[in-house]
Design a protein around this nucleic acid. Sequence first.
DNA 1: CTGAAAGCGCTAACAG
DNA 2: CTGTTAGCGCTTTCAG
Lengths: 344, 344
Amino acid sequence: MVDKPVRIQDVARAARVSTATVSRALSTPDKLSEETRKAVFEAIRLTGYRVNQAARNLRMQRAGAVLILVPNLSNPFFSQILAGISGVFMETDYSVLIADTRARGADDTRLVDYSLARVDGIISLDGGLRPEIMAEFADRGAGDRMLFACEWVQDTPLPSVRSDNVTGARLAIQHLYDLGHRNIAHVTGPEDNVLTHARRTGMLEQRARLGLPVQEDWIIRGDFSLDSGRDAARRILEMAHRPTAVFCASDQVAFGLISTLTAAGVRVPEDLSVVGFDDIELSEYYVPALTTIRQFRRTLGARAARLLLDRLTGARPDLPDGDVLMVDVELVVRDSTAPPPSGR
Amino acid sequence: MVDKPVRIQDVARAARVSTATVSRALSTPDKLSEETRKAVFEAIRLTGYRVNQAARNLRMQRAGAVLILVPNLSNPFFSQILAGISGVFMETDYSVLIADTRARGADDTRLVDYSLARVDGIISLDGGLRPEIMAEFADRGAGDRMLFACEWVQDTPLPSVRSDNVTGARLAIQHLYDLGHRNIAHVTGPEDNVLTHARRTGMLEQRARLGLPVQEDWIIRGDFSLDSGRDAARRILEMAHRPTAVFCASDQVAFGLISTLTAAGVRVPEDLSVVGFDDIELSEYYVPALTTIRQFRRTLGARAARLLLDRLTGARPDLPDGDVLMVDVELVVRDSTAPPPSGR
DNA sequence: CTGAAAGCGCTAACAG
DNA sequence: CTGTTAGCGCTTTCAG
C-alpha cells in the first residue's frame, strides 16, 4: 500500500513541538534539550519520517548534488575511481550525478549550463575539457566548487588529485634497467593528454639519468587503448633493430601489445619485456601476469570527494603547492619482465 | 564573476508576460499563441534562464531522479550497462543516482528508505536483494517504478530486461560439441545468483539434447571472479580424468582459469578449450583471444532506462510474457577453442 | 489564451 | 532553548 509521505509537520505534531524544532533536531541536535531531542527522534522513528530533499534544497538554495564528469563511462579504468567518490558522498545528503563527456550527443558547451545549474560541485576525471569551457566554468563561479581527479587541465587554478605519474614512469624504467635492459621503447597515451605528458617526462628523465640512448622511433604514439597497443606491436615487429623492452602508458596498451606480439611469435618476457601502467584488476591474471605501476584509484576518488565536500561545506583545507594532492604509486613486478635475451 | 541565478520572474518581466505563461512555454508550448511563445523563448535566451529543478520538483511532488542499484561499482562489467542507462536519462530532466549495494556500509534495509524517499524510480542491476527488501519495496508502492536490468529477482512481479542467458549457454556447449568435445566442464557463478542458474540450465539442457554424459565433479562452483577462475583451474589440474573443454560463467572466470592453467603448463586451446560469457572489451586481446558469448550491455541498459521512463511518464507499454524483455546474445569464436587433443 | 494567487516542505531569522 | 513566520522558485488551478 502506498502511504502518503510524512512531512515535518506530522513529526512536529507527534512530538508536540514546532516544525522548527524538528528541523533543528536534524541539523543541530546539540542545540536542543535532551528531553526535546529524544521526543523528536522518537516521533521521527514512529512516523517513519524522511526529509524531502527537494524542499530542503529549494530552501537552502542549493542543488543537493555533485556532478562527476567521466571521459568514457564504459572504460573500466574509471569505475573504481567512481566507487571511491560514490562511497564518500553516500554518507552525505549530496546525490552523485554522472555524465559521460565523450558520449554521443554530449556537447560540452551545454555541459556547462547543465552542470552549474543543477549541481553544487563538480569533479572532473576529464583533463581534456577545452579551454573555452574551462573559462566559462571559471566565469560562472565554479572556481570554488570544481576540481580534478586523475586527469587535470594544465594552467587552470583548480585543485586536482592525481597519481604520481612521473615517479611511476621512473620506477618502470629503473626496473627494466636493473634487469639489464638498455634498449627501451615507450608507447605513449594520446598526444594532448596530461597523463601522457607526465609519464613521458618521467620516462625521459630517468633515461637521461641512467645515460640511456634516446632513439626517436622508439617513442610510439598510442592512446591508452587496446587497439593502440596492437598498432604499436605491428610497428615494433617491422623494426630492423627492435627494443628489448617496452614501457606502455596503460595496462590496456600493454595487453594489446602482448596479444599481438604473441600471435606473431614474439615471446613475452623471453624475447621482449613489457611494463604497463595502472594495475587494473585483470593485470594479475593476464598471460603473462603483467608487471605494472599500481595506481590507487579508489583512494584517489575518495580523496577528491572529500576535498570537494570540504569546500562545499565551507571548510578550506590547506592544499600543498599548486593545489595538487599527489597520490603515491608503486611498482608491481610480475611475469612480463625478465632480463633481455643474451647477446643484446 | 558570479551572476545570481535568473528566476522565472526575471524571464516573465523581460517578456512582459506572467510567470505562469513562462512556465507553460516550457511544459506545453502549443497552448500559447505563437507570438507569446516567441517572446518568451527570446526572453529565456536573453536572460540565460535555467529551470530550478529543486523548485520544480518540490512543486511537482517528485524527486527528479532515478536510482541505479549496482552490486559492485568497481566491476567493469557493469559500467557499460550504466553508460546505456545514463545516455537515455541524459536527455530527460531526471538525474541518475548510483548506489553500490555491496559497498562497505551499504546496509540494504536503509537502502529502501533512502531510495524511495529520494527518487522516482529504481533500476536494479542487483538480483541478490533479499526477499524482505523486495517485500518492503512492494509495500511502499515501488511496483510501478522499479525494474531489473541484467540480473533480476525470481518470483517478483517487477519487469526485467535481461540477456538470453539460457540460449547463450546452449550456444557455448553446441560450439564445443561441434569441435568434437564430449567432456565439457562448467564453472558456475555464485550459487544464489539468477544468472548462474540460467546459464547452468542452458548448459545442462544442451548437454542432455546432445546426449553428453553428466559428470558431477565437472560442475565447479565459482562466483564470476578472476580468483574463482584460478581456483577452478587448480581443481581441474588435480583431476585424474580431465575435461577437454571448460565453459565458464563469465569472461573473468575464463581469464583466471586460463592464466592458472597456462602457468601450470596446460596449453589453451591445444590441451584444453575454454569458452567465456560476456565478451568484455578485453576478451579480444587476451592470450589467447577468448571465445565467448557476447552480451549487448549498452543496449540492455538503454532498454531498461527507456522502459522505466515510460512508466514514470504514465505510459504503460505492453510487455511480453512475464514482463521480461529479452536481449539476444551471440557466440563469438576466437582462439581459446579448438578440437580436443587427438585420442580423447 | 493569459494572469493572479496559492502552496509544495523545509530552514533560518527573529522574538520570546 | 523553543515557537512563529516568511519565503526559496516553481506549477497549476481558477477566473477572466
